[in-house]
Amino acid sequence: EVHFESHGEEQAMRVVKMLKKRNLTVEVKVENNKWIITAK
Rank of each mutant, 00 (worst) to 15 (best):
Glu1Tyr: 12
Glu1Gly: 10
Glu1Asn: 09
Glu1Ser: 11
Val2Ile: 13
Val2Asp: 04
Val2Met: 13
Val2Glu: 06
Val2Leu: 14
Val2Trp: 15
Val2Thr: 07
His3Phe: 12
His3Trp: 13
His3Leu: 13
His3Thr: 12
His3Gln: 11
Phe4Cys: 15
Phe4Glu: 03
Phe4Ala: 04
Glu5Trp: 09
Glu5Asp: 04
Ser6Tyr: 15
Ser6Leu: 15
Ser6Trp: 09
Ser6Ile: 15
His7Phe: 14
His7Ile: 10
His7Glu: 13
His7Leu: 12
His7Val: 10
Gly8Gln: 14
Gly8Tyr: 15
Gly8Asp: 15
Gly8Arg: 13
Glu9Ala: 10
Glu9Ser: 06
Glu9His: 11
Glu10Asp: 08
Glu10Tyr: 11
Glu10Ala: 12
Glu10Thr: 08
Glu10Arg: 12
Gln11Glu: 14
Gln11Ile: 10
Gln11Val: 08
Ala12Ser: 02
Ala12Pro: 01
Ala12Val: 07
Ala12Lys: 02
Met13Ala: 08
Met13Asn: 07
Met13Glu: 03
Arg14Asn: 07
Arg14Lys: 10
Arg14Asp: 05
Arg14Ser: 07
Val15Ala: 03
Val16Ala: 06
Val16Glu: 02
Val16Lys: 02
Val16Trp: 02
Val16Leu: 08
Val16Tyr: 07
Val16Thr: 03
Lys17Ile: 15
Lys17Tyr: 11
Lys17Trp: 12
Met18Arg: 07
Met18His: 07
Met18Gly: 04
Met18Thr: 04
Met18Ala: 11
Met18Tyr: 12
Met18Ser: 06
Leu19Thr: 00
Leu19Trp: 04
Leu19Phe: 05
Leu19Ile: 02
Lys20His: 06
Lys20Pro: 01
Lys20Trp: 08
Lys21Ala: 12
Lys21Gly: 08
Lys21Tyr: 08
Lys21Asp: 14
Lys21Met: 10
Lys21Gln: 10
Arg22Gln: 13
Arg22Tyr: 15
Arg22Val: 08
Asn23Phe: 15
Asn23His: 13
Asn23Thr: 02
Leu24Asn: 04
Thr25Glu: 11
Thr25Lys: 10
Thr25Phe: 13
Thr25Met: 12
Val26His: 01
Val26Trp: 03
Val26Gly: 00
Val26Ile: 08
Glu27His: 11
Glu27Pro: 00
Glu27Tyr: 11
Val28Trp: 11
Val28Leu: 08
Val28Tyr: 07
Val28Arg: 00
Val28Gln: 01
Lys29Val: 08
Lys29Phe: 09
Lys29Glu: 03
Lys29Gly: 02
Lys29Arg: 13
Lys29His: 10
Val30Asn: 06
Val30Tyr: 14
Glu31Leu: 11
Glu31Cys: 08
Glu31Gln: 09
Glu31Ala: 07
Asn32Arg: 05
Asn33Lys: 04
Asn33Tyr: 04
Asn33Cys: 09
Lys34Arg: 09
Lys34Trp: 04
Trp35Glu: 01
Trp35Asn: 01
Trp35Lys: 01
Trp35Asp: 00
Ile36Gln: 03
Ile36Ala: 01
Ile36Trp: 03
Ile37Val: 10
Ile37Asn: 00
Ile37His: 00
Thr38Gln: 03
Thr38Ser: 06
Thr38Val: 09
Thr38Met: 06
Ala39Asn: 01
Ala39Cys: 14
Lys40Pro: 04
Lys40Ile: 11
Lys40Met: 10
Lys40Asp: 04
Lys40Ala: 08
